[in-house]
Amino acid sequence: MELNLEGRTALVTGSTQGIGAAIALGLARAGARVGVNGRSRSRVEEAVAHLAVDDPRAQFVPVVADLATEEGTEQAVAALPDVDILVNNLGIFGAQPALEITDDEWRRYFEVNVLAAVRLTRAYLPGMKERGWGRIQYIASDSAVVIPAEMIHYGVSKTALLAVGRGFAKEAAGTGVTVNSVIAGPTHTGGVEDFVYELVDRELPWDEAQRVFMREHRPQSLLQRLIEPEEIANLVVYLSSDQASATTGGAVRVDGGYVDSILP
């Protein structure tokens, strides 16, 4: 199956590292011009340079903006006025006892993990509808379905994203624009390594720490290992393609069998 995105422009939020960077590279390798987003100009430029080494033919556009703010959304739209593929990857997470999560933390998680994606969807969906083609995706998490006791504020924000995706899919009905959520399972990134070591012995070597984490904190994973970012990116690239034209309004899983359900 050839996934050809030549002539398409994509924006991947929070894409200077981890899953976002892998998605940006995957879309670029398929031929799309890709906006790489982060809050710091130096981090964005460093990420673009690193991604260009992986594929010198790829086209990347630096998009320096704090998308957790309305001003940041305006800056992103100024950098990329017309976007065909919007991948809302930006998100924050962290462990915190449920009864110690303050109102300010709840608001911060909602602003970053939910409202940032809603604002960009409002900005770009009208143009996609007018052109009769578009792809919008929200990178959710298994935590949206299996709320983790150690970070319920994160889980709730990702549950909200599933509803946001389904709702905007209805708004885009019959226009040639598809809107989907991607339920990503426990994934191997630098941030997740830090998170793992918050929950297991920091003296353990990484391979052993990962196994302990999966066994003690994510035992329902059928994959029994952390997912690599490129594996998430593969699904996102497919959903961004013409071949995925009949998939919309869905919550598509790339979770290593973590969610114990035969339905999404």
Rank of each mutant, 00 (worst) to 15 (best):
residue 40 S to N: 08
residue 10 A to S: 14
residue 66 D to H: 01
residue 155 G to S: 01
residue 253 R to P: 12
residue 189 T to M: 03
residue 190 G to I: 07
residue 168 F to R: 03
residue 157 S to W: 04
residue 211 R to H: 08
residue 15 S to E: 05
residue 181 S to M: 08
residue 98 A to K: 00
residue 154 Y to W: 01
residue 94 G to M: 06
residue 114 V to T: 13
residue 231 E to R: 05
residue 174 G to W: 12
residue 88 N to Q: 06
residue 163 A to W: 06
residue 27 L to H: 12
residue 106 W to A: 06
residue 236 V to K: 02
residue 201 D to P: 02
residue 253 R to V: 09
residue 152 I to L: 10
residue 21 A to R: 05
residue 38 G to M: 04
residue 210 Q to I: 00
residue 155 G to P: 06
residue 131 R to S: 10
residue 255 D to F: 11
residue 28 A to N: 07
residue 53 V to M: 10
residue 156 V to L: 08
residue 50 H to I: 04
residue 21 A to D: 05
residue 143 S to H: 07
residue 118 V to T: 14
residue 55 D to M: 08
residue 165 G to R: 04
residue 221 S to Q: 15
residue 124 Y to K: 03
residue 159 T to N: 05
residue 141 S to L: 08
residue 238 Y to H: 10
residue 155 G to T: 06
residue 174 G to P: 13
residue 67 L to E: 01
residue 139 I to Q: 08
residue 32 A to R: 11
residue 69 T to W: 02
residue 246 A to G: 00
residue 72 G to Q: 00
residue 245 S to K: 07
residue 200 V to G: 09
residue 182 V to R: 03
residue 3 L to H: 08
residue 11 L to N: 04
residue 100 E to Q: 13
residue 44 V to L: 09
residue 123 A to P: 00
residue 10 A to H: 12
residue 69 T to S: 09
residue 196 V to M: 05
residue 246 A to D: 01
residue 175 T to K: 10
residue 28 A to H: 05
residue 84 D to L: 03
residue 253 R to E: 14
residue 167 G to S: 15
residue 102 T to L: 01
residue 166 R to W: 12
residue 191 G to W: 01
residue 127 G to Q: 08
residue 157 S to F: 03
residue 215 R to D: 15
residue 219 P to A: 13
residue 161 L to A: 07
residue 44 V to W: 12
residue 49 A to K: 11
residue 29 R to V: 04
